[in-house]
């Protein structure tokens, strides 16, 4: 059976900074996994390497059995990855709905000729894109905000919108980069439920980065923990919670703070 995602001995240097140090881990198809680690551990860099935003310095990355090491971002995405961003990247001039439509239209197309005349399939396909996007907005609870400019939404809603936009790509693997950042405890609870529901309903593999250990412990049966670019522990929540290296990593950080 093919794995959803496999990292094998991945290294990444930024000049002298060894941001990712010989990372290897495997995600089974259909998993809901967590990637945790203190500030600057290299979590976001892992996402950037997987999605081709950066090239790896060495090592290999496989997606559903297919090698995607150093492939271009759009190629990787077309193979079935979608992600959200730690520092939101919504299209600032577009409305909430248009943000989702921009992703959704990848799977509902019409020809160039139909696009510049609005003839043929144009009307029906545009309606499909709109309806499907609205459905996704309903899923994340933003349907009533559809016509608002995306960047005028409150922070927590913008994060949900990024999730809807990523889902519109109909990915097989969804990468969420600190989806709970900037949310209050109540919103975090809602978000956890949302992630679990999405995981169950869409039947996809999800890897979620979270800075706060407790959140991931709640929803992810499989957790990968890293520090200083390297893997320090991997396993189920109990295993991670009791792991001395993990405690040290997080304790060390608290002492610094």
């Amino acid at each position: 059976m093919a794995f959803a995602l496999e990292l094998g001995g991945v290294n990444k240097f930024f000049g002298g900074v060894h941001a990712v140090n010989d990372m290897s881990f495997i995600l089974q198809e259909g998993e809901l996994a967590g990637l945790i680690g203190p500030n600057g551990a290299g979590k976001t860099t892992i996402f950037n390497l997987v999605t081709g935003v950066y090239d790896v310095s060495s090592g290999h990355i496989t997606l559903f059995g297919e090698d995607i090491t150093n492939h271009k971002t759009y190629e990787v995405v077309r193979k079935g990855i979608a992600r959200t961003f730690q520092n939101l990247r919504l299209f600032a001039s577009a409305t909430v709905l248009e943000n989702v439509m921009t992703a959704c239209q990848q799977h509902h197309r019409y020809s160039f000729l139909e696009a510049c005349t609005h003839l043929g399939r144009w009307r029906s396909v545009e309606r499909e894109i709109r309806d499907r996007s609205m459905t996704l907005l309903e899923r994340v609870g933003l349907a009533d905000r559809a016509d608002q400019t995306a960047t005028t939404l409150p922070y927590g809603h913008q994060r949900r919108l990024e999730i809807a936009r990523a889902l519109a790509l109909e990915p097989r693997l969804l990468l969420l980069d600190e989806p709970a950042a900037g949310m209050n405890p109540e919103e975090v609870q809602d978000l956890n439920r949302l992630i679990q529901k999405i995981h169950a309903d869409f039947g996809l593999t999800i890897l979620v980065i979270e800075h706060h250990m407790e959140l991931v412990m709640e929803i992810c049966p499989h957790i990968v923990c890293m520090n200083f670019g390297a893997l320090i522990a991997e396993g189920d929540p109990e295993h991670i919670q009791g792991h001395p290296e993990v405690l040290k990593a997080y304790l060390g950080e608290e002492v610094e703070e």
Partner: peptide, 22 residues
């Protein structure tokens, strides 16, 4: 007004996010 317009504007607003939409 349609897919192409949204695509052009997406590339203008944020080319990394646009690449991550394929």
């Amino acid at each position: 007004h349609g897919s192409y317009g949204r695509m052009f504007k997406a590339c203008r607003d944020d080319h990394i996010a646009a690449a991550l939409l394929g």
